[in-house]
Every structure is written in C-alpha cells, then in structure tokens.
Write a protein that binds this DNA or RNA. Structure first.
Lengths: 219, 219
DNA sequence: AATGTCAATATTGTTCAACAATACTTCCAT
DNA sequence: ATGGAAGTATTGTTGAACAATATTGACATT
C-alpha cells in the first residue's frame, strides 16, 4: 500500500519538506525564499508553493512581507520569552495533573534513556532530539491533541531559535539529569513537585538561551 | 489612509470573511464548500480561495477530504472534551499566576459588566459574545501572544459547536455571575481561588454542553 | 564622494484556462 | 432492488499571463 504521506495534498507535503529544511538548518533565519527558485527546486507550480508558504507563515516559521516575499523567521528575545511562557503553561500544567501510569510516562522514560545514551557518545544533536521528545511527551500527559499540536508548533519555532546559536552541548546536555528527576517524581505520583521542578528547569533553560542570544547579538 | 485590513494578502482577507460566515452561523457544520461557488461568490480565483481554505483547515474550522472538497467541521463530543482540556489548561493556568493589576483585568471587568447589561435586555447573543470576551481576557493575563492566538482558534472551534445547539440562553446566561466571582477573586489577588473557581466553571459548562449534545444527537 | 531621480528589470499578487485524476449520477441489465 | 458501466461534475495541479510593487543601475546634481 502507498505511504500515508504520499496521499496528502501537495501543499501539505511541501510544507512538511520545507519545515524539515528549516529545523535542520538548511535554510537560515532571515533568508528570503524566492517563489521562482523553490517552485523550480521542488518541481511544483508557484501556486502550490504559495499554499505551502502560507501554512508555514501561519505556524510562525516564515514571515511574509507584502510584495517582498517570504523570509525565514528570525526569532528575537521577545520570541524566546513568549515561547517559554507557553512552555511553562503547557508543560507544568500537564505535569501537575498527570496520572503516574499514563502511557506518555513510558515515552518520557524512553526519551530520558535515549538522551543519556547519546550523551555518553557525545552526540549532542541526538541529546537535543531526545530532549525535545521528552518535553513533547510531557505535554502528551494532558491528553489533548490540540495542546500537543500547538506544542509541536512552538517547539519548531524554538528550534529555529537554537539555530541562531551554536552551542548544542551547553544548551541541552546539562538538563538531561533534571529531566530524569522530573520523570522520577512523575512516576512516584508526586505531580506537584514534578511541575515545580519543571518550572525550575524552564527558567534555567530560558535564561541560558537568552544569555546565548545576548552574546550572539553583540558581535 | 487605507484600512490596515485592506492591505492584507487576499487569502488572509478571504479566510477572515469565511471565518465570520462560519462563526455567525451562515455556514452550517457539515456543509460542503464548493470551490466554484465560493470563488464566484467572492469574485476571486479558485487558487486564492484554495489558499484561504487551507488556512481555515489548519485552524480546524474546515475539514478537507481528498478529491471531495472542504466541509465545515462538525464538532463531536470528542472535540468538545478536547477543547475543554485546552480551556482548563490555559484559563486556569493564566488565573493562577495572574497579577491583580494586570491590564487585562480591566478588560475582564468590562466584559462582565457588558454581559450583565445584555442579560438585562435578554440579548442572549450579546451575553455569549461578552462571555467569550471575558475568557479571552483571562488568557491575556498570561501575557503571551501565542497563547492568546491559540485560544482564539479554539474559541472559534467551540463556537462552531454551539451552533449545533440552539440554546443561547441556557449555555451562557447562568455563568455570568460565576465570571463575576472569578473577577472579584482576581482583583483581590486571590489567584489560587480564582483558578479553582474557573475550573468549577469549566467543568459545569462542559457538562452542560455535552448534555445538550447528547440530546441533539438522539433525534 | 554622496545624494537624488528616473527608467529598466525582477518579483510578487492574482487571475485564467487547461487537463488529469477522482468522485458522483444516471441509466440500463439482471 | 442491485450491480455495473458510461457520462458528468468536482477537485488537484499546472503554466502562462499581466498588473502592481520593489529593486537595481545609470545618470545628473550638489
């Protein structure tokens, strides 16, 4: 049978391809995306490409300037601050009311163990991915597809922010153990303390990123 | 000078027009939206219209079936339940950490007073609008544009759900006083209790809607 | 050298017409 | 009624066209 992906509307497939290029860093923040160039590159019509552009613009990954084209979004400090407000709301909220036997807890554990393994091998990119997976699993505790989708969007935007920096080690590695702590508290059913620790985590992480931003800003 | 709205891309303007038709009930859940009919109606090309359709599909207001077209979403009980999970997360979370002098508190007060006035005149549609405004203001307490936008989407989806019912009075009017209580607690700085009351509110409201759904389902 | 002006050029915004692929209808035979 | 086969309508996607706007480059002025 054909892959479920193959049957999606063209615009959706394009949007996904572009999103992958974005979060993998092939397209860098600020870069202009010419309609002609990309419709040629993907061998699709300009119309189809424009539909995809609009979807990603709505996600905040692209920015649209009238009569000038679309550009890869350039996250600012304000963006980071806003995203961390979202994270505190969603992640701490999910933990606070989590059931310790929820299926997502298993995913959290897998993510933590994967992160530890990758850290062992100094695979910082892998640590980063496992970290993202952990936090997505935390949000999944809330059992809401809308919250999970929304979180996925915000995480993609945040990833764009990470691309501006270049310190994959310092930004993820120190937090693996904190994730483990939060996981342990959740498994023990100590939801309130887990949420509290997550808030500490997010405050720390936010500060680290803002600091890195500051550094990269005054070059 | 020209209205800021006039300069938006055509697809965005179309999406807004369509959204207005949707939440005002001119288009009813389940209805199919023919590309030909609507591109004629709005006097735009099919391509532009399709861009708008995609935007609204991403918002959950429309549903897209391959090679069959787009339809107005039909909220189900699962939709309602998911939306109320979102509401509890966002609204209770916002209240819990709210500052009692936040500008949005003023908006909350205006909404409550407007709701009371409309209730006096038995303007139930007006009560509903004021109610929506109150809850949007609650989310605004969290000072995150992303959370506010997300909430706006979910609220629009929920509005679609209300359209399936036809009891504007029973679904909003009883809650005006509860809003007032929550407002009072917030103004007094009793954030924790405000959040608690909001949770009670949302549980009540959810149950009322699900009940109404049940009734309308077995016709 | 810096600045301003104006035409030439490239890009986006939008429409239109075409055609393939898919879904829906109609009608006929069983 | 039931199933199937043709015919019709709709969506999916493309390519070309043109207006509107933005960028570039040459030239003149200071």
């Amino acid at each position: 049978m054909t892959n479920t992906m193959e049957t999606l509307p063209l615009a959706d497939r394009l949007a996904r391809q572009l999103r992958d290029l974005l979060i993998s860093g092939d397209l860098i923040p600020g870069q202009r995306l010419s309609e002609a160039a990309f419709s040629e590159r993907f061998d699709v019509s300009r119309n189809s490409l424009r539909e995809a552009f609009r979807l990603l613009t709505k996600d905040g990954l692209l920015r649209h300037e009238a009569n000038r084209g679309v550009f890869v979004s350039v996250p600012t400090m304000a963006t980071i601050i806003d995203i961390y407000r979202v994270r505190r709301m969603l992640e701490c909220g999910a933990l606070r009311q989590a059931w310790h036997q929820h299926p997502a807890v298993r995913t959290m554990r897998e993510a933590v163990e994967s992160a530890k393994a990758k850290r062992e091998q100094a695979d910082w990119l892998g640590v980063g991915s496992a970290n993202m997976m952990f936090h997505a699993a935390v949000v999944a505790l809330s059992d809401s597809s809308r919250l999970s989708e929304f979180y996925a969007h915000v995480a993609a935007e945040l990833r764009l922010g990470f691309l501006l920096l270049d310190d994959p080690e310092g930004l993820h590695a120190p937090f693996v153990d904190l994730n483990d702590t939060i996981l342990g508290l959740t498994e023990k059913g100590n939801a309130h303390e887990a949420a509290h620790q997550m808030e500490a985590y997010l405050n720390l992480s936010e500060r680290a990123i803002l600091k890195a931003f500051e550094r990269s800003a005054d070059l």
